[in-house]
Simulated scan of single mutants.
Amino acid sequence: MERILSMEDIRFTYTPDEPDQPYAVDGVSLGMQQGEWIAVVGHNGSGKSTLARLMIGLLFPQEGTVGLFGDTLTEENLWDKRSQMGMVFQNPDNQFVGATVQDDVAFALENNGIPFKEMTVRVQEALAQVKMDGFMDHEPQHLSGGQKQRVAIAGALALKPRLLILDEATSMLDPQGREEVIKVILELREKTGLSVISITHDLEEALLADRIIVMNRGRKFAEGTPAEVFAKGEELTALGLDLPFAARMTALLRDRGLPLRETMSERKLVESLWTSRSNG
């Protein structure tokens, strides 16, 4: 499989003229294959959002290299690489440039030279995917926070990116909206091989990933499958992270003497409880 992202010993500081200040990202290395979903989790200030900005060239590291789609990321190839990516930030107001919802979703497509006829189809499809096609002529500033975030996600999906980066992109959505958007992304991933990097503090969302990276004080604290990472339960809670509900409940019930298997899935927790009851 093609490696679409690589970061080698990345170091970045917002205060390069103050050598005694800690790095926002300190010695981080990672690689990502086509079609993979990686979740980057950590408390506020852990470096995860800075890491996302380094991935797409909004920032360049003082040390180390970033590779995208087989090439080292440089200022010369930055725009070509970005044309293959979509990114959604936590605050959608920072991304709006169009007078209407459809203008905003079309903006990046127009910049990438997509023909008008195809652009129209893509805008309609992307807005329908996030259930915002009924708002095409609305002004973005008059939308609710959750609606704005859906439009921002539609703008990224319309690009048909090879790599989608979500920086706390579902944090402003209600539970149903979050579930619907995640479902769309999962379907696109299955159909197109879309690669996803989810920057989040929501460990329930991180369960969807193939691999989780835990950031702490600018460094990579842990990396592995969801099962491997969440096995570090007490270490994660010490960092200020909340374990998924099923993992927390399993631990509490095991402390009370129930012989349950480690699980992070609510469905598997119910099955384990049923088995325990049947055997008891």
Rank of each mutant, 00 (worst) to 15 (best):
M55A: 14
Q95N: 06
R3M: 13
N111M: 02
G47T: 08
M1R: 15
S276A: 15
L68Y: 04
W79Y: 13
M172S: 00
H201T: 09
I213V: 15
V25F: 04
F245K: 11
P259L: 06
P61K: 06
W274I: 14
I199V: 15
L127G: 10
D242V: 07
P226G: 03
R211W: 11
E2G: 08
D20C: 08
I56P: 03
G86P: 05
V97M: 00
L203K: 10
Q90E: 00
T250I: 02
W79C: 00
F60I: 10
L239F: 08
Y14M: 06
R162M: 07
Q34F: 06
I4S: 07
V40M: 06
I185W: 14
M119D: 00
G67I: 05
S278N: 05
N44D: 10
G155W: 02
M215Y: 06
N216Y: 10
F135H: 13
P226M: 06
T192K: 12
P175C: 11
V184T: 14
T192A: 12
R248V: 05
P259G: 05
T225F: 09
G42S: 08
Q102F: 04
Q129F: 05
L51M: 12
T200K: 02
E187S: 13
D80M: 06
P161R: 07
G64Y: 07
G27M: 07
N279E: 15
V130G: 05
V181K: 04
G98Q: 01
D202R: 02
V97L: 03
Q33E: 15
L186Q: 15
M55I: 14
D26L: 08
M249W: 02
P175G: 08
V88P: 01
F221C: 04
P61Y: 08
L207N: 04
M7N: 09
R189F: 05
Q90C: 01
G218S: 03
H43W: 12
D137H: 04
W274T: 15
N44V: 14
N111P: 04
D93N: 01
L58V: 12
F230S: 08
I213D: 07
A251S: 10
V123I: 09
A247F: 06
M1D: 14
T15C: 08
E266V: 14
T237K: 14
G67D: 07
F230V: 07
Y14D: 03
I56W: 02
S195D: 07
L164E: 00
E2K: 12
P259H: 10
N112R: 12
V229D: 08
L109G: 05
I182S: 10
G177S: 09
